[in-house]
Nucleic acid binder design. Structure first.
Length: 619
RNA sequence: GCCGACUUAGCUCAGCUGGUUAGAGCGUCAGUUUUGUAAACUGAAUGUCCGGGGUUCGAAUCCCCGAGUCGGCUCCA
């Protein structure tokens, strides 16, 4: 089964797109139709009603009309018209978008924007006809250009719900007029539809923007601006712990931390090519003396200058720099949202400067770190080899031969490691070289691009980076870039939703909460002593709640804050010196209540869990 | 950037077609209570109704401009 469903549900969804279009045609006779394909879980139709903005308030009306059509059980009648007759139909029924599609069908043999060069879309006017006829489907008095297949009648389409209306450029080109895209979801049964809607509710509960506020991780300020998240103490702890995981693994294999300023003179990016190529996304600064600077949109050009600060021997290589630091990109306002897309991006960046002969080992080492990290956070990975697009040579630096060579090198490294179990994506390379991109799958089954390892043969050229080889000659070096989390902001958006805010002990901003059942002086004293010991002796993050509230309330608070361990310290504990930790549900491995345990043993165990970065409790 | 929707207390939201001192629950604060594994009781405070301009006798409500948020599109080194 593919993403848009198997045969039957696919036909149902596609039929619903037609039914929705016929309902809209009935309500707004002037409506012009674009395309109406099946998508994951449903369908959409691109519609343009001159002078009218269809809104979600119109949905009840449209849905009612659709249900009427469904109850009429109209047959879907397939017909084939000669192409000129089809064009006549489009003209007569005032459907300019269909006319354009038919024209493309005739000239190019396809209507799919993805199969056509984007410059050709709708503009091919000459050449031999590649299609002589067009296929149509009719239900009731609504006829649509369509390849099918469809359900038998409008009565056989399962259960649906219109979801939202959104703007969409005609054929995906931002120079084209915008149409209104009406989205619906559809399933064979009422139950499946209800389950889907419930799943959406669940996903909403896990939304990192909501959890970010509820768990007090980050915030935004209108005064600071869009796309500029502000991290609270708790959120900063979470970031720091995740980054520490990555950096410890890097340091083990010889990376060294470096630090660079967040701005640079224009000159650096003129040399690297960023100034002209990414000019739109650069935050530019003019000094009072009129000199031009820019906020860094990436770190590699700065790092090259550290490498280039002295003459390097082949004996010194590989030289491995790491730096977790923010870069700044002037993203379009419409793209910003939560932490997924921001303007101040923290990258866990790393650059290896090495000989070409060392690239393979370096890539494999970095790959190992990526694997270890994602297995640590519980996300399965899929790898994609991102290559350049030979049709768009102008987008890439370097020569054809260089690209061919480095892509072959990278492909060989991949094949030697994992065989052919990977996808190749022409057009997804960086402008300076091909890369390995990693997709992580979250707990809700969604895939996100996360880590990246890049083979850069262009910046060493641009910045003339060399080492002295065994014979005393200058040798051009290569660079390998790697970000494990990619952007910490985007990774946290994913990770918060992946865990639902239930972070493992090692990453949790608060690891243990100690509550007292009352405010008895001796009890409070003991609780304070335990908290202090946990912090000072074991380096744990502990909060103490001795407020004047019921134990039940305090436990509820702790649960809602998703604190891994809760310990009630009262008269019993005062007497026995034992505690009975409450383990967060997702971390429990044993059924039932935990056994009383000595305070020291408990703290020791938790500290070990934090250190070994396990996600389950050993208590 | 483009299309559309939304913006009322810290949070979630109510406030019909313009009509006195703008509400609820949760949270907060205070007092009472001194509590044993998911919400004690009582009371109180809290608003630039996103900002600015306009229409009107009168605007949270209508119109315009701007900001922000959300859903998409385009983009994403």
């Amino acid at each position: 089964m593919n993403k848009t469903g198997d045969g039957q549900i696919h036909a149902m969804r596609h039929s619903l797109a037609h039914i929705m279009a016929s309902a809209v045609a009935k309500l707004w006779p002037k409506a012009r139709f674009g395309v109406g394909p099946v998508v994951e879980n449903g369908f959409y139709y691109d519609i343009d009603v001159p002078g009218v903005a269809i809104s979600e308030e119109d949905f009840p009306k449209i849905e009612a009309e659709m249900r009427k059509i469904i109850s009429e059980k109209q047959s879907f009648v397939h017909s084939v018209k000669p192409i000129d007759e089809a064009l006549g139909w489009a003209k007569a029924s005032r459907q300019p978008y269909k006319e354009e599609l038919l024209n493309d069908l005739m000239r190019a043999g396809t209507t799919l924007a993805s199969d056509l060069n984007s410059d050709e879309l709708g503009t091919i006017t000459s050449g031999e006809a590649k299609a002589s006829e067009a296929s149509f489907y009719t239900n009731g008095d609504f006829t649509d250009l369509c390849r099918g297949p469809h359900a038998k009648t409008t009565g056989d389409v399962g259960e649906f719900k219109l979801m939202r209306v959104a703007g969409a450029y005609w054929r995906g080109k931002d120079t084209n007029p915008q149409m209104q895209r009406l989205y619906g979801v559809a399933f064979e049964t009422k139950k499946e539809l209800a389950e889907h809607l419930l799943m959406l509710e669940e996903a909403k509960k896990r939304d990192h923007r909501t959890l970010g506020r509820d768990l007090d991780l980050f915030t935004f300020s209108e005064l600071v601006g869009q796309g500029l998240p502000l991290w609270t103490p708790r959120g900063t702890t979470l970031r720091t712990e995740l980054d520490r995981f990555v950096q410890e693994m890097r340091d083990e294999v010889g990376f060294m931390a470096v630090t660079v300023p967040h701005i640079t003179k224009k000159d650096l990016y003129e040399k690297s090519g960023h100034w002209s190529k990414f000019s739109d996304e650069l935050f530019k600064i003019k000094t009072r003396e009129g000199h031009e600077f820019a906020m860094k949109p990436m770190n590699c050009p700065h790092h090259t200058q550290i490498y280039d600060s002295k003459q390097r021997s082949y004996r010194d290589l590989p030289i491995r720099y790491r730096e977790t630091t923010m870069v700044y990109r002037d993203e379009q306002t419409g793209e910003l949202g939560g932490l997924s897309r921001v303007r101040a991006i923290t990258q866990d960046d790393a650059h290896v400067f090495c000989r070409y002969s060392q690239v393979e080992t370096e890539v494999l080492t970095l790959w190992g770190i990526v694997e270890k990290f994602y297995s640590g956070v519980g996300m399965p990975l899929r790898m994609r080899l991102s290559l350049h697009d030979p049709a768009k040579r102008a987008d890439y630096m370097g020569t054809d031969k260089q690209w061919k060579d480095v892509e072959a090198t990278l492909r060989k490294i991949v094949q030697d490691k994992i065989g052919n179990d990977f996808e190749e994506a022409p057009g997804d390379a960086a402008f300076y070289g091909p890369k390995l991109d990693f997709m992580g799958k979250d707990a809700l089954g969604r895939e996100h691009q996360v880590a990246t390892i890049q083979f850069d043969f262009n910046q060493p050229e641009g910045f003339d980076l060399t080492c002295i080889d065994e014979n005393g000659a200058q040798e051009r070096i290569a660079m390998v870039h790697c970000a494990v989390m990619g952007s910490i902001e985007r990774f946290l958006a994913i990770y918060i939703e992946h865990t639902g805010g239930r972070f493992p002990v090692w990453a949790a901003p608060e690891q243990i909460r100690i509550v007292t059942p009352n405010q008895d002086e001796k009890v409070v004293e003991l609780a304070q002593k335990i908290a202090e010991e946990a912090r000072e002796k074991y380096g744990l993050r502990v909060e103490l709640d001795t407020s004047n509230e019921s134990v039940g309330k305090k436990i509820r608070e702790s649960e809602m804050q998703k604190v891994p361990y809760l310990v009630v310290v009262g008269a019993k504990e005062l007497e026995s010196g034992l505690v009975m930790p409450r383990v967060r549900a997702d971390m429990r491995v044993k059924e039932g209540n935990v056994e009383p345990i000595k305070v020291d043993n408990f703290l020791h165990t938790v500290a070990n869990e934090a250190k070994s970065r396990v996600s389950k409790s050993s208590i």
